[in-house]
């Protein structure tokens, strides 16, 4: 798999390193990948989920 490099601000990188370690990630890459996946998933999800949630949740049986 090809890997592209992404530039990060120095201060941010320091923070990322710190929190990756604190939250028990094995590497900085893993932490960043997870963060990005999570954000993208949120964006992907938001529209359809919002619609379906809005429509069906008022039934009361689901959340």
């Amino acid at each position: 798999m090809g890997k592209d490099k992404v530039k990060l601000d120095k201060d941010l990188l320091a923070k990322v390193k710190k929190f990756a370690e604190l939250s028990g990630y094995t590497s900085v890459e893993e932490f960043i990948t997870h963060c990005l996946e999570k954000e993208i998933a949120k964006l992907e999800e938001s529209d359809s989920e919002e619609e379906i949630k809005k429509k069906l949740k008022g039934l009361g049986y689901i959340s």
């Binding site: 949630k53 809005k54 429509k55 069906l56 949740k57 008022g58 039934l59 009361g60 689901i62």
Partner: peptide, 25 residues
């Protein structure tokens, strides 16, 4: 309801702690 959902109430509050985007219904 008129919005085509099975019930979406509206709740207006000045209490930030009550703000929850993830409420169903």
């Amino acid at each position: 309801d008129l919005l085509g959902t099975y019930g979406q109430f509206n709740y207006y509050t000045t209490v930030p702690a009550e703000i929850n985007e993830d409420i169903g219904g």
